[in-house]
Design a protein around this nucleic acid. Structure first.
Length: 823
DNA sequence: TTTAGCTCAATTTTT
DNA sequence: TTGAGCTAAA
């Protein structure tokens, strides 16, 4: 391993060393340096120049924080003569990282791509480039550099959520835990939450009467072993492993504290506990860090609590880093005054926030619109109608419009109408390209070729396409595998598979079956041999040919199969593009260098594919209307925004059977704030009277967030009486036994429409007589076992507090909804 | 071994 | 309503 502390700061790379990005040997005169800072406002400039010591920048929506960050990095390099490689900047998305990299390069006026890590990376530094990447990519690089501290040896795979769930189900079997006793998905959720909090299995102390927690600890322990045995990491583990390396090895920690002298963290409000601890290892006082840490965030845009983001990280920064400088960026350059005022009024209802007031010099702009529609069909018609109208009246391109919804399920209505009207649209987010079945299948082949120890991907493809290896055979293999690993031989699933395939005695499986297995084993072995000789796309074609994957789909011939073939072709393009990227400007490379690059194609591609999201590629310039969830909208902006489904229960989202804590409502409110502040000029918010959910129909109240916007900023348009669809009428008639003529004025059942059988059963009141339920045990389908520790309210509104111990803690429920869960 | 029908569950998803 | 995952029949 190359010691990068003593590496020369000029490009004195050894004869056979890796190619390096060109060092920034340029001299910067004061005038040029000043030019970097000139475009900033006073606050932005203050933040950019406060380079030493802890700094927190509270950056409101649209306040130019990326501009500030990139100028700051450019200033560090040019004005402060900080070697570029001593600068680290972490973001959450690849897109944000790419943008930052690009903009720093641009302001330093150096060729785009100079900051790209060399594709073939041998563990040394690339002098002259700041390290800009996502938490996950930065941690992966660290882990790879320090691989000898981890026990991992081979190229590892990164398991996504689906892979993780499969592995967890396997862990259940290994410890003979019935997946009906606890739901593997809730265990998965709990494990991931624990990882976000950097809690390891040995830290858990399950109380003796809490079954869920006991199971959790056992599964978590086994799961960690299984991950290791598969040479696999999950997303949470990438962060926690990097953290543990730094925490447990002083020399490594010191090395990185020296290496990265200036830390930058974007979207700090979304960091979780593990990420927080990781940063403390690099910068913290207690760990001997330099404390040159600049975090940028907006507590009002923290919308990932449910994924472990800990809002305290941003709220408590000043305590964590005493003497921290605080700079607020409050001027918004994006939206009209009306939009900013509305957003500020909404967010002012939150308790958990810092004192920060967004303002703008922009013009007042049009009033917001609140539109009430009869049902979701009418809502979609209205939105698309408005898009057409505004597009022609204001001469706007379709790319200037966007539709935000709370849940993905809402997109369908809009898609239907957009398609009918032949308006080009694009769904941002949604199902990732890499999550499609056929892509996961071919990726699984690639991953297995790289790392046959990876049992999850091996099992995925062992009978895909169908080659006559059925459940019975798989069960036998599984049993063998378990007993083998018990005997500490440490054989992988792949080893077991090979030995069974070569066993023609007919003892374990029939001769016919072992022949089929052998066919598969030889296929993989052939591919493993061919891999280093081939370009990635050639290998891919070989896989498709040898397995007959595409052939099968072509024979199937259904529309779905054809779509899959298209995706496989798209994947081919992607591979070719990737190859070209890896070989740009490679004319002068030696044969060895070329061979090394070729061999590295597969591992580099695999890792990259595991760490990218669809959103990274969504083309903002394509002239299409963009549809996305509110979560995906963060960081984007559009001239015209439609915020749909603004109804109680849907947005803010509420689970009717459970009391919603204020914190959750606050998070929904932040989501609303994010949505509103995406709009530059026009914002239309809509809600419907009647909405169909999973087959049944409910009356919807308008979202409480409307009430938080002052009347003078918003115009109300009621389309619900004129736009009633036949479906609407039919539903009202069916559900309420009267014609639609009465409907709009009808006394609305408040809140959510209840399922009659359910509410009747519970109101008959097994516990209605006032008998205390405190101390009773309950088994909740989602949270497992718990004990009632308190009640309040009475009658229909009686609530109980249940302590689930473990990671779910105490939760409040309406008694009538959980009455049937008592043991 | 495959597949047709059944049950069950169902926010948000940067990596 | 939709989809995934599982059991019972071909």
């Amino acid at each position: 391993m190359i010691d990068f502390e003593s590496a020369p700061s000029s490009s004195g790379s050894g004869a056979s060393g890796p190619p390096r990005a060109k060092p920034l040997a340029r001299q910067w005169d004061a005038e040029t340096v000043e030019a970097f800072l000139k475009g900033l406002n006073a606050k932005q400039r203050e933040a950019a120049e406060a380079t030493d010591g802890p700094l927190i920048v509270l950056a409101g929506a649209g306040s130019g924080k990326t501009k500030m960050l990139t100028s700051r990095i450019a200033y560090l390099i040019s004005g402060k003569n900080v070697p570029a490689h001593q600068i680290l900047a972490v973001t959450f998305t690849n897109k944000a990282a790419a943008e930052m990299r690009e903009r720093v390069e641009k302001s330093l006026n150096i060729a785009a791509g100079s900051f790209q890590a060399p594709p073939v990376w041998h563990g040394g530094p690339w002098i002259g480039a700041p390290e800009i990447g996502t938490f996950h990519s930065v941690c992966m690089r660290l882990i790879r550099r320090e691989m000898d501290r981890t026990g991992f040896t081979k190229p590892f795979v990164i398991y996504d959520d689906a892979d993780q769930l499969s592995l967890i189900k396997g862990s259940f079997e290994k410890i003979s835990l019935d997946d009906k006793a606890v739901n593997p998905k809730s265990i998965q959720g709990a494990i991931n939450r624990l990882k976000c909090d950097a809690v390891e299995p040995q830290d858990l102390e399950p109380s003796s009467h809490n079954l869920f927690e006991k199971h959790l600890k056992r599964v978590y322990e086994q799961y960690q072993k299984d991950l290791f045995a598969n040479n696999a990491l999950d997303f949470g583990e990438i962060i926690t492993l990097a953290y543990r390396i730094l925490r447990d090895h002083e020399d490594v920690r010191e090395k990185y504290q020296k290496r990265w002298q200036y830390l930058h963290v974007d979207e700090y409000q979304d960091t979780n506990r593990a990420q927080y601890l990781l940063l403390s290892q690099l910068a913290g006082k207690r760990t001997g860090g330099h404390q040159n840490i600049c975090v940028v965030g907006d507590e009002d845009q923290s919308i990932y609590k449910w994924r472990g983001a800990d809002i305290r990280n941003i709220l408590d920064f000043e305590q964590d880093y005493p003497g921290a400088r605080v700079v607020k960026l409050e001027q918004n350059y994006r939206s009209t005054q009306t939009i900013i005022k509305a957003a500020s009024h909404v967010i002012a209802n939150n308790q958990q926030r810092k004192d920060k007031t967004l303002w703008t010099d922009n013009e007042e702009g049009a009033k917001l619109v609140r539109a009430q529609l009869a049902d979701e069909r009418a809502e979609a018609e209205m939105v698309v109608g408005e898009i057409k109208r505004i597009a022609s009246e204001d001469e706007r391109a379709f790319k200037e419009f966007s539709i935000f919804y709370r849940t993905n399920a809402q997109s369908r209505q809009f898609e239907d109408v957009l398609r009918r009207e032949k308006i080009p649209y694009q769904i941002v987010g949604g199902l990732r390209f890499y999550d499609r079945k056929e892509i996961k299948d071919v990726l699984a082949y690639l991953k297995v070729i790289l790392n046959p120890t990876d049992s999850i991907n091996l099992k995925r493809i062992i009978n895909v396409p169908a080659r006559g290896i059925g459940k019975t055979t798989l069960d036998k293999l599984e049993t063998l595998h378990h007993s083998e690993s018990d005997s500490l031989l440490g054989s992988s699933y792949w080893d077991v598979l090979k030995s069974v395939a070569h066993d023609t005695s007919g003892k374990t499986v029939s001769a016919g079956t072992s022949k089929k297995l052998l066919g598969f084993v030889q296929l993989i072995e052939r591919l493993v041999v061919e891999q280093p000789k081939l370009m990635l796309s050639e290998l891919y074609h070989l896989i498709l040919d040898e397995t007959g994957y595409a052939r099968e789909l072509r024979i199937e011939g259904t529309e779905e199969a054809l779509a899959r073939i298209e995706n496989l072709e798209e994947f081919d393009n992607l591979l070719k593009e990737f190859e070209e990227d890896q070989f740009v400007s490679g004319a002068s490379w030696s044969e060895e260098e070329r061979a090394a690059r070729k061999a590295a194609l597969l591992p580099v591609f695999i890792e990259q594919s595991s760490l990218v999201s669809e959103g990274d590629k969504a083309d903002p310039h394509a002239s299409t209307v963009k549809l996305m969830t509110l979560h995906s909208s963060k960081g984007l902006e559009f001239p015209v925004v439609f915020l749909v489904g603004m109804e109680e229960g849907l947005f803010p989202s509420v689970r009717p059977w459970e009391e919603t804590p204020d914190e959750d409502i606050e998070e929904e409110r932040r989501l609303c704030y994010v949505g509103i502040t995406r709009a530059r000029e026009k914002l239309v918010m809509s809600h419907v009277v009647l909405r169909r959910f999973w087959g049944n129909t409910t009356y919807q109240d308008p979202s409480r967030f409307f009430a938080e916007i002052p009347d003078e900023l918003i115009e109300f348009r009621d389309y619900s009486t004129s736009s009633r669809s036949p479906q609407f009428r039919a539903n009202v008639a069916r559900d309420y036994g009267f014609g639609a003529a009465n409907a709009p004025g009808v006394p609305k059942p408040s809140g959510v429409h209840l399922d009659h059988s359910f509410s009747q059963e519970s109101s008959s009141g097994i516990f209605g007589g006032g008998a205390s339920v405190v101390g009773r045990k309950i088994r909740h389908p989602e949270y497992g076992r718990g004990t009632v520790i308190a009640t309040d309210g009475s009658g229909d509104q009686q609530k109980i507090t249940i302590d689930f111990k473990g990671s779910f803690g105490q939760r409040k429920f309406l008694l009538r909804y959980v009455a049937s869960f008592f043991e």
